[in-house]
Amino acid sequence: MAFFEQQVAERERDLGPDHPDALRSRNNLGGACQQGGLVDRAVSLFERNLADSERVLGPDHPDTLTCRNNLAGAYEAAGDPARAIPLYNRALAGRERFLGSADLRTMLCRDNLARAHELTGDPARAVPLHERTLTDRERTLGSDHPDTLLSRGNLAYAQHGAQSPERSAELFAHALVESERCLGPDHSATRLVRELLTHVRGG
């Protein structure tokens, strides 16, 4: 934490508080605060950084989109996923427009938005988001990639929450076969998928 504090102080002093490098340093400090459990301070830093980034860099600059995504994550960490959803939506729209739907940062943002919907008790809204990410990852990474397996599990979990147990079980069964083949039957991810499949089948 002290390192990031010092970095912010030095860059604001040497470059000015509105310099892009100073904004990035403040963003890093916010992330360190959130990881260290100082969620309220992280929210405050991210709120300031987003306002400054929108003013200095513009609302659609890649750094601004990152700030918006990070503030949404801080709201979520503070127990307010409903407040995070509109920010995730704006960040996702910007990343899809400027980076493309299959860019890693875009897919991570889409996963974040889907999770926020699940946390607010609306998994049906998460389903199409997970479906799109799964399609993108299968196309760009392949069906065997760990991130693709994760997407398949995320979709299966959302389908179960959206009261589609048969589709959920089908997806979990597929994910289990792929996970056993790619990661091995005793891998922690494989065991988790196996437990979830048993759960959705009512076992």
Rank of each mutant, 00 (worst) to 15 (best):
193 V>P: 05
90 R>H: 10
193 V>W: 01
174 H>M: 14
71 L>D: 00
177 V>R: 15
157 Y>R: 15
133 T>L: 03
99 L>N: 03
22 A>G: 09
131 E>H: 07
19 H>W: 05
21 D>A: 15
39 V>C: 02
147 D>H: 15
80 D>A: 09
7 Q>Y: 10
66 T>C: 10
141 L>G: 02
5 E>G: 05
197 L>N: 00
158 A>K: 12
38 L>N: 12
159 Q>H: 10
185 P>T: 09
137 R>S: 08
103 D>H: 15
112 N>F: 04
138 E>H: 08
165 P>T: 09
194 R>C: 06
164 S>G: 06
82 A>V: 13
1 M>K: 13
48 R>T: 11
104 L>T: 15
125 R>S: 12
82 A>I: 13
188 S>R: 14
21 D>G: 13
126 A>M: 08
155 L>T: 05
80 D>K: 06
12 E>D: 11
156 A>M: 01
127 V>G: 02
85 I>L: 01
184 G>T: 12
177 V>D: 12
46 F>G: 03
136 D>W: 07
1 M>R: 14
52 D>P: 11
180 E>M: 08
53 S>C: 15
121 G>K: 04
19 H>T: 02
65 L>F: 07
119 L>V: 08
155 L>R: 03
8 V>E: 03
34 Q>G: 09
199 H>D: 06
41 R>G: 02
184 G>P: 05
145 H>S: 06
80 D>F: 10
144 D>S: 15
47 E>P: 12
198 T>L: 12
103 D>Q: 11
57 L>F: 11
25 S>H: 01
201 R>Q: 14
94 G>R: 00
196 L>D: 06
183 L>S: 02
149 L>S: 06
61 H>P: 01
88 Y>R: 04
190 T>C: 02
172 F>W: 06
